[in-house]
Amino acid sequence: MPDPRFKVLTSASTSGPGDAGRTGSWRVERPVIDMSSCIPAKTGKHACHLCWLLCPDNVVSKEIEPAIDLEYCKGCGICAQECPVQAISMVPDADFLEGADSE
């Protein structure tokens, strides 16, 4: 055990959204889930959840319809790469700005 006179400051913290700051501001593209293909959403069962497991910032919820916390999602695209049914697409964030052209 460390000597009580020593603080031993390290960069060690509970993993979770926000652990590395407000990483949502880093994002260029955001993940959008097509719930008609997503395995848990389609089957109504807790299955797959690979996006939840592999998200480096823990911003994907482990729900029947997975939700992404955009406050902290940095847009890395790992979830889209790993989704076994290609239900997640990366869409330019600019498209969601108010006044952006929509189809």
Binding site: T10, S11, A12, S13, T14, S15, A20, G21
Partner: peptide, 22 residues
């Protein structure tokens, strides 16, 4: 689970539990 020595920003910050981290 903990995150050890990940990208640590220039400024101190509040961690997920609201504790100020260097």
């Amino acid at each position: 689970p903990e995150s050890l020595n990940t990208v640590t920003l220039p400024d101190a910050r509040l961690d997920v539990d609201g504790i100020k981290r260097g």
